[in-house]
């Protein structure tokens, strides 16, 4: 079964993860721009990061046949940092037009401050100008209130709900979002947040319409294989294969396809893999013979 992993921070993962993902059927990944675990002190660090997302990471993914897409944005945590917030917003238009950028994100709320709200609203407008959907990070603390506030901001900006993916959802947030017309993302984690078993229960109760699942794997304790693992659990629980396929392949393509920069036909074949290719003279091989890999 082909898988589109719609939220994974490969910037923080090792090359072996790409190989494992590829073997597990992951044909495409979506890497949202995010918080690196430590505050950046100047806009230049964002420029370099954004250019890694459209450069080296795409190259690295392609070496394993994986198509790499990204969303660009100012994450909510650093939206609170006046050293960088406005300057990042100023440079984002250029990166929103990059071909592999299929959305604006992660935007949203974290501490739920007024400054976060301001930059979330401004980035909804940015998404509208660039005709892109948005990936919304929702708070890990006081989640229900944060979800409701995110939805309020989307409404206040009159941004189309069908172009909004509210991520890091759980059983509680479904009750809020189910009838809004927006999309819901569930981040499956090894120990915290959503587990594969809980996800199976959600699918059995609520179905799969406008749902996506992801690993949100990053520099923390996380597992990039959580989507393939959940696929197994769903099939074992008797969820029909075509339903599972819609959840992990067709749904993310449908959501991010709203950018006009991505469709299923583009992903019909694996990304061109040529282990002899270099990116700015750099290769993933570390001197190894490509014919022996």
């Amino acid at each position: 079964m082909l898988i589109f992993e719609p939220h994974i921070h490969m910037f923080s993962r090792i090359t072996d993860d790409y190989e494992k993902l590829s073997f597990a059927g992951v044909r495409a990944v979506l890497e949202p721009a995010f918080w690196l675990g430590q505050s950046r002190t100047s806009v230049g660090s964002f420029v370099d990061y954004f250019e890694t997302l459209i450069g080296w990471e795409r190259h690295r993914a392609q070496q394993f046949g994986i198509h790499h897409f990204c969303t660009m944005g100012l994450n909510p945590r650093e939206a609170n940092d006046d050293r960088v917030n406005q300057a990042v917003l100023d440079i984002l238009p250029r990166y929103c037009e990059k071909d592999s950028c299929v959305g604006v994100g992660e935007i949203g709320l974290d501490d739920q401050t007024k400054t976060e709200e301001k930059f979330m609203a401004e980035q909804l407008e940015l998404a509208r100008r660039h005709d892109l959907p948005v990936l919304v990070h929702t708070p890990h603390r006081d989640k229900k209130k944060g979800f409701e506030r995110c939805i309020d901001i989307v409404r206040e900006q009159n941004f189309p709900m069908e172009r909004v993916l509210l991520d890091h959802g759980n059983e509680e947030t479904i009750k809020i979002t189910r009838d809004l017309g927006c999309w819901s993302g569930f981040s499956i984690y090894p120990n915290t947040k959503m587990s594969p078993q809980r996800m199976v229960a959600i699918v059995q109760e609520y179905g799969i319409e406008r749902f996506v699942i992801n690993s949100a794997a990053d520099w923390g304790v996380s597992d990039p294989m959580m989507v393939p693992r959940t696929v197994v659990k769903l099939e074992q629980a008797g969820v029909p294969r075509e339903r599972v396929e819609q959840l992990v392949w067709k749904n993310p393509i449908r959501f991010f396809g709203q950018s006009g920069r991505l469709d299923e036909a583009m992903l019909a074949k694996p990304a061109t893999a040529n282990l002899r290719e270099t990116f700015e003279g750099n290769s993933v091989l570390r001197g190894q013979d490509p014919d022996k890999l």
């Binding site: 250029r94 929103c96 037009e97 071909d99 006009g260 920069r261």
Partner: peptide, 10 residues
């Protein structure tokens, strides 16, 4: 220009 140029291929 930096916003218009990247979109030309598509």
């Amino acid at each position: 220009l930096p916003v218009v140029f990247p979109g030309l291929p598509r």
